[in-house]
Structure formats: structure tokens, C-alpha cells
């Protein structure tokens, strides 16, 4: 166990910095970092299925959107009831998980593999986007919650305990909540990777048939991993909806669907921590470029992506992390 933590010195140092950050920076930047961290979970989910199991999904955004909309619809309908913001999060995650299982069942028990999974999941998220875009009319309402089409939903409560005056919308509470959530999830994912299911899942990437002939249930393992990934995407969806008080069909579209894939691949899909850090880095980078780069922002972003795959096939963040731990002995 101890040796395990020794290996993770780099991670521990980065998290210590992140934990101390609120002392040094003001509320705007803190909120902004919280926002960047909202996007890490959807990418971590992709790192589970893609990095570990070699399953490329473009459909993480479907779960992101479903959870965001689920949270909004439930919480708006039961506005004013005690603890609504908390249990609507739980409920929408359950729904997302069930949907993830259904999709996963369809994929893995239906014998769909490789790039076909990418296309099927892409089609699923595009179906959801196309449908949601045209739900502007009053006939598209679930209870008292209007779906409001392309313009998006608003009016959901902030996650928190109203009676205790504890809200998650912004500030230090939101920051620490998301950061601690990220730490817990990262530790759980490392544990998952070393668990029996995790090892079987890792092996399925290399050779499904051999794993199966050894008596392991390949489909079930893949289904479990896929459901975990969909839940992680759901967490991102809810946090994002909460952060902006807003969710649109846009978040399930083609561009949104490609972004997690790009971030994960460019960061280093085999290492969860690199994905976590890389996701923060790339969201920050694209925002910073948009502020300073004017119309060249998108070109620079594209160049960085192209160069990083050309020269660092395993991901630029993972490469940097490995270099750093190699160079500095005590890491």
C-alpha cells in the first residue's frame, strides 16, 4: 500500500497545490478552475472505456446531456420540496446509469465492436440532440418543466442544502466539493483498474476471445465499465448544468461529442491522472486562446492538437508527467 502511494508522489503534490489554491487566488479564478474541473469526469469516463478497454465512444455526451436534462426536469418539477437539489441529482444519475446499461447491453451483447461502437454512440447522441432541438413548443414539457428546445432549459435550483444556506453554485464550497469528488473518483478508478474486473477489462482490449476462453464474462465486464463511464459523464453533465444554471441540446452535438475524445487522446488516455490534468489544461487553453488569440485562437488550438499527436502519440500530458518523474529523482 505504502509503495503504492510512493509511486503517486506526483499526483499527491499536484493535489496538494490544488487544495491550497484558494488561499492564493481570488474568487473569479477559483470559479473558473471549478468550471474546468466540471469537464474532467466525462473525460475520465472515456479514459475508462477507451484507455483501459479500447472502446472508443462518441456517446459520452448523450449521458452528459441526459443527466443534465434529467436533473433539470426533476428539480424544476419538485421545486421547493426539502433537499430537492440533492435527490434530483441522485435520481438523474440513476436514470443515466440505467440508460448507460441499456446502451451498453445493446452494444456488447449485440456483438458490436471497434469503430462501429463509435458510430453507434455518435448516432445516439445526435438523435438526442436533433430531438431536443425541436422541443420548443409547449407540448414538450415533462410536468411543469418545459424542455424549451434549442434555446435550452433554465430555472433549476442550485445544488445544496437551502435550509443550511449551503450552496454549490460558486466560490470555495463549489471548488472543494468538485476537487474532493475528483480525488475520490480518481482513487476509485485506480482501485478499479487493479480489481479483478478491471484487470479482465484491461485484457479484453488485447484479445476478447482469449479472455472469454479463460472463463471470464467479457460482455459483462465491458457493460460494467461502460456504465461507470456513463455515470461519470452524467456527473459532468449535472455539474455543468449547475454551474451555468443552463443546459442545451448543443451539449449533445457533434462538436461536443468530439471534444472529450480529443482531450483524452491528447492528454494520454492510459493514465487517469493525466486525463484529469490534461482536461483542465485543454479547457483552460481553449478559453485563454479565445480571450487573447482573437481569430487565430482556433487555429492555434488545432495546431497544438496536431503537433501533440504527431510527436507524442501517448499523449502530451502523460509524456510530460513521465519526463518529470524521470528527471526529478525524489518524485
Amino acid at each position: 500500500m505504502i509503495s503504492n502511494y510512493k509511486k503517486k508522489k506526483f499526483e499527491i503534490i499536484v493535489f496538494s497545490i490544488l487544495l491550497l489554491l484558494p488561499i492564493f487566488i481570488d474568487s473569479y479564478y477559483l470559479d473558473n478552475i471549478s468550471y474546468f474541473m466540471c469537464w474532467t469526469f466525462i473525460s475520465l469516463g472515456l479514459a475508462v472505456i477507451w484507455g483501459m478497454g479500447g472502446i472508443l465512444s462518441f456517446g459520452q455526451t448523450a449521458f452528459f446531456g441526459l443527466a443534465g436534462y434529467g436533473f433539470s426536469v426533476i428539480s424544476i418539477n419538485f421545486l421547493g420540496i426539502a433537499g430537492v437539489s440533492i435527490w434530483s441529482v441522485v435520481l438523474s444519475l440513476i436514470i443515466t446509469g440505467i440508460f448507460g446499461m441499456i446502451v451498453g447491453y445493446f452494444l456488447f451483447y449485440g456483438g458490436i465492436y471497434d469503430v462501429f461502437i463509435g458510430i453507434v454512440t455518435l448516432a445516439i447522441t445526435l438523435v438526442l440532440e436533433t430531438f431536443m432541438q425541436q422541443t420548443a413548443g409547449p407540448e414538450y414539457a415533462i410536468g411543469s418543466a418545459r424542455l424549451n428546445g434549442f434555446n435550452g432549459m433554465q430555472g433549476m435550483p442550485t445544488i445544496g442544502f437551502e435550509s443550511l444556506q449551503f450552496g454549490l453554485l460558486e466560490g470555495v464550497t463549489q471548488y472543494y466539493f468538485i476537487l474532493l469528488l475528483a480525488i475520490i473518483i480518481l482513487i476509485s478508478l485506480y482501485k478499479f483498474k487493479q480489481s479483478k474486473i478491471g484487470l479482465v477489462f484491461l485484457a479484453t482490449k488485447e484479445d476478447r476471445e482469449r479472455v472469454s476462453s479463460l472463463g471470464h464474462n467479457v460482455q459483462k465486464t465491458q457493460l460494467i465499465a461502460f456504465t461507470i463511464a456513463s455515470l461519470l459523464a452524467g456527473i459532468s453533465g449535472i455539474l455543468y448544468t449547475n454551474w451555468g444554471g443552463y443546459i442545451t441540446p448543443d451539449s449533445m452535438g457533434l462538436v461536443s461529442a468530439a471534444l472529450p475524445v480529443v482531450y483524452v487522446a491528447a492528454s494520454g488516455k492510459k493514465d487517469f491522472f493525466s486525463v484529469f490534468l490534461g482536461c483542465i489544461f485543454f479547457v483552460w487553453l481553449s478559453q485563454t486562446l479565445a480571450i487573447n488569440g482573437k481569430q487565430f485562437a482556433i487555429i492555434v488550438m488545432g495546431l497544438i492538437l496536431v503537433i501533440s499527436t504527431r510527436f507524442f502519440p501517448d499523449g502530451i500530458i502523460l509524456m510530460l508527467k513521465n519526463k518529470l518523474t524521470e528527471k526529478i529523482k525524489w518524485l
Binding site: Y28, D31, N32, Y35, G152, W243, G244, Y246, T248, D250, Q287, A290, I291, K294, Q295, A297, I298
Partner: peptide
């Protein structure tokens, strides 16, 4: 520059 992207609008509105 919000790049015709709703997310940018949200980020920069806060900024």
C-alpha cells in the same frame, strides 16, 4: 470573442 459557442458566452459573462 464568443466564437458562436454558448459555452464561451457563459464563461465570459461571468468573467
Amino acid at each position: 470573442d464568443t466564437q458562436s459557442d454558448n459555452r464561451r458566452f457563459q464563461e465570459f459573462a461571468r468573467r
